[in-house]
Simulated scan of single mutants.
Amino acid sequence: MSEIVLEVRRLRKDFHTKKGILKAVNDVSFAIPKAETLGLVGESGCGKTTTGRAVIRLLEATGGEILFEGNDIRKLDHKGLREMRKHMQIIFQDPFASLDPRLSVSETIREPLDIYGIGTAAERADKVAELMSLVGLAERLANSYPHELDGGRRQRVGVARALSLEPKFIVCDEPVSALDVSIQAQILNLIQDLQEKLGLTYLFISHDLSVVKHISRRIAVMYLGKIVEITKSAEIFKNPLHPYTKALLSAIPIPKVGMKRDRVILEGDVPSPINPPPGCIFAGRCKFAMPKCRERDPALTEVSESHEVKCFLYSDKEQGGAE
């Protein structure tokens, strides 16, 4: 079995609001082996980005464990976390909003090296040139500013910045969703090429299953703060089990004239994450819902090799442990 770089156990992230406690991430667990990609997919607002940011402690988790190479990073003090950040980075969704408009391309990529005091001025300049070449940025762009670049080049700057400290693990938070379709494939291919060259491990977050399929070895489907299905990429397209996963897949258009999928239309409203109803979080929108679905929360259970699903259609085990 491959070495596990990141293991998340029963992760929780709550936000206190005037109306109550919003459970953005609720009892999420997964593991990512070295040099592999786990795709995390779901509708907007399901908790994907919150999960990614909590994993690298941009947001402080409410509960659970985050094990990076066996060490729980939630227990690290400021000094330990600062050192750990060299190994865990993030590529943000909006390349324009995530770049400092006052810094040129070279200054943006060099900034992490400056902060950590790595190398001499000449060595940092060489490192910046090396990173620009690695991500496909022309040398002539070194003194350009974010507003002078198109979306694809801005995202390449973001990728280069994330790589500057030579991390082992990167959260890719919808890195192509803000880009033109013609540019998306270029950035996805770049991210894959970098993984092969550098042995990187990714948590790839997206609302688009077709994008996740292109880059991920395994896919986790998230709904209202919980993972409802997780399995190999090919398996989830060939044999989806959870009713929510089937609905997501049915919405993907077929790139052939005249061919359409049988759409699964979800009825009802998404329940509030502040005061969720008892039982299965998907019961109110599921046509297969049974009385017990509104009373108990199903466990995320392995139903075949490397295929887990959170549904009473495949398991009648109650969720273990207290939240």
Score class of each variant (00 low, 15 high):
111 E>T: 10
278 P>S: 13
10 R>Q: 15
170 I>D: 00
178 A>G: 04
32 I>S: 03
173 D>Q: 04
183 I>W: 01
183 I>Q: 00
149 L>Y: 06
294 R>V: 12
236 I>D: 02
253 P>V: 13
278 P>H: 10
309 V>R: 06
96 F>A: 03
89 Q>V: 09
249 L>Y: 05
12 R>K: 15
67 L>F: 10
102 R>S: 08
175 P>Q: 05
113 L>S: 02
291 P>E: 13
66 I>S: 04
195 Q>S: 07
183 I>M: 02
128 V>G: 01
176 V>W: 00
275 N>V: 13
203 L>Q: 03
40 L>F: 03
290 M>G: 07
281 I>M: 12
301 T>D: 12
208 D>Y: 04
78 H>M: 14
50 T>M: 07
53 R>P: 04
319 Q>Y: 14
1 M>K: 12
222 M>C: 07
68 F>A: 03
105 V>A: 03
83 E>M: 10
251 A>M: 11
193 D>A: 14
12 R>D: 09
18 K>F: 10
95 P>V: 02
110 R>E: 11
129 A>C: 08
190 L>W: 01
220 A>R: 01
314 Y>W: 13
103 L>M: 15
206 S>Y: 00
209 L>W: 00
221 V>I: 13
155 Q>H: 03
307 H>Y: 08
214 H>M: 12
134 L>A: 08
214 H>Y: 15
49 T>N: 04
243 P>Y: 02
283 A>P: 06
155 Q>C: 02
27 D>M: 07
184 Q>Y: 01
198 L>Q: 04
54 A>S: 14
149 L>C: 05
67 L>N: 08
143 N>A: 11
70 G>C: 13
251 A>R: 13
245 T>V: 08
215 I>E: 01
280 C>S: 07
107 E>V: 06
47 G>Y: 01
148 E>M: 09
93 Q>R: 02
291 P>V: 10
189 N>G: 11
93 Q>D: 01
108 T>A: 07
87 H>N: 15
131 L>E: 01
241 L>A: 11
164 S>D: 07
58 L>C: 10
291 P>K: 14
189 N>T: 09
27 D>E: 14
136 G>T: 13
178 A>D: 01
47 G>T: 06
298 P>E: 08
171 V>C: 05
35 A>N: 14
242 H>Y: 06
193 D>T: 13
272 S>W: 12
138 A>N: 13
196 E>Q: 13
241 L>Q: 12
215 I>C: 03
304 S>I: 09
319 Q>L: 15
